[in-house]
Design a protein around this nucleic acid. Sequence first.
DNA 1: GTAGGGTTAG
Length: 631
Amino acid sequence: MERIGLPAATAAAAALSCRPPLPHKHGTCSSLLRHLLLPPPLLQFFSFRFHSTMSSNPQLHRIDFNNIKKLEDALSLFDEMLRMRPLPSIIQFTRLLTAVTKMKHYSASLSLYKEMGALGIPINEYAMSIAINCCCHLDGVNVGFAILGSFFRRGIVPNVATFSTLLKGLVLEDRVPEAVELFLKLIRERVCEPNEVMYGTIINGLCRTGNTGRAIQLLRLMEEEGKCEPSTVIYSTVIDGLCKDRMVDDALALFSQMIEKCIPPNVVTYTSLIHGLCNYGRWKEVISLLREMGERKISPDVRTFSIIVDGLCKQGMAEVAEGEVLPMMRQKGADPNVVTYNALIDGYCMRGQMDKARKIFDSMIDLCLVPDVITYTALINGYCKSLKMGEAMRLLLELPSKGLQPNVISYSTILHALFRSGKCGAARDLFDDMKAAGVVPSTPTYCILLDGLCKNGHVAEALSVFSMLNSKGIYLDIAVYSAIIDGLCKDGKLESARDIFYNLSSKGLTPNVKAYTIMMNGLCQEGLLDEAKELLVKMEQNGCMPNDVTYNTIVRGFLKRERYPEATTLLDKMLARGFKADATTSEIVVDLLLAKSQDPVQLDMINRILPTCKDGAKNTDKFLGKRGLCF
DNA sequence: GTAGGGTTAG
């Protein structure tokens, strides 16, 4: 077994130990690790002999593993292999297992593996890694560790690939701190020298859990160590992590470094960057990256294009996606698939353009693309937005007949719409149906439920559900708390609302701009304007930028209490930041105008605010027109 | 030509 130098272990520990590892939720792997230090038993010698006698089988050259397309092919090939004499070698069997596993038939692969063991075919560390991989996907990584333990007894020595599989298993179960701990232990106890794949697994785990900073530390460590240079895959992982953390410019900077180091980007690298840029509507840069891909002879694939389609649709440009990107995809041989069509359908549905959405849906069927639960959920969302609740409900009920099960988002979408249209009874029923169907409500579902109850005047009911969820230990995010705070404020229970708001940090939650605005609104309603103004300062100090809603809320608060000079100051700030008065604020100002105020401060304010009343301009005109007034 | 790591949807 190869050794790793102590400086690497120390540096890796330093890079990763800034956060203490979480306590084990599912037992420990350390006892298993002790087996690693046991000397390999003699069995290995026998298995080696058995293995080498079989590998001279002339028939194995005829076995074509590349032609396996279906599980049945693999199973019949397995039977055929068992009939061969002498038996094909373990290498041939592992190739078959690989084919089955790549098709994601993990339980089938595992049964074949067990059958091999029962037939006395000598299992090696390659087959074992496959089995562990399958276990990780089926019953969890703990079963994988059990397999590892069972093989110490049979003298098979796990290697860096085996451990990478187990690390991946931990990552799959969101047990990243444990994965990091095991990784460090493997280095510290010199069990195996990490290679690029192993680093890649940990770096991916860190990126997936939002620890991109630590991932970059590991990347730098790899570079400093120089034993295994981070390649395209590692760089792509970190670049994707940065993009997902909304740090697109950092991602672009890392991309430049990658280019400088002559590490060639691939379609995945570009796809991640394009995704990051699409989220921010940085279309010019998207186009220049596409051009760059062309220069490097890297073809964007259906995923790259689908991301662009989705980005355009999310920013209200479904027509551009349909009219320009789709034809381009066909022309480049990256035919749109269900994901592409779902994005497009969702784009039209979000704007309530159901006729266009239906047309896309029909063309999708014509192309023999099979709509999935996401397609139907997009349509359900569209009908909800167009207030066609009957149609939405009909689709939801139709799903099982299409062989599809509505998911938590399908239900939550309708639940949201029912509450919004004031149909609390139907919403409660649907929530019960959902649970009866075995669909587990998510945090956003609870947010919709509690907010819906509050907004429809059932604050007491919302509070009792809220405390029930709390007592069950169900995770509730800042949005759920905001809904409750808003409900309490509107129910005249400012004290309780304030209490919850100022204790958010004790729940590990940080108020966001919406939470601050809701609290500010509550304070304004009760006339606690100075406290509201203090909160505005405080939120900025805490790095939370107020938005147009925040400013409108507080300006309105001051206007309603006729504290015009302060309202004017706040208004100036709002305008300076490029925010406009919304319709409600505009109407209050118009009311002031109608009062024919002679107060110079008021008049000054009216003159400032009116030109900014873009949203409310129509209303304002109507309002004034009705009274025979004009500016 | 035996195993392990990276990109897409509501």
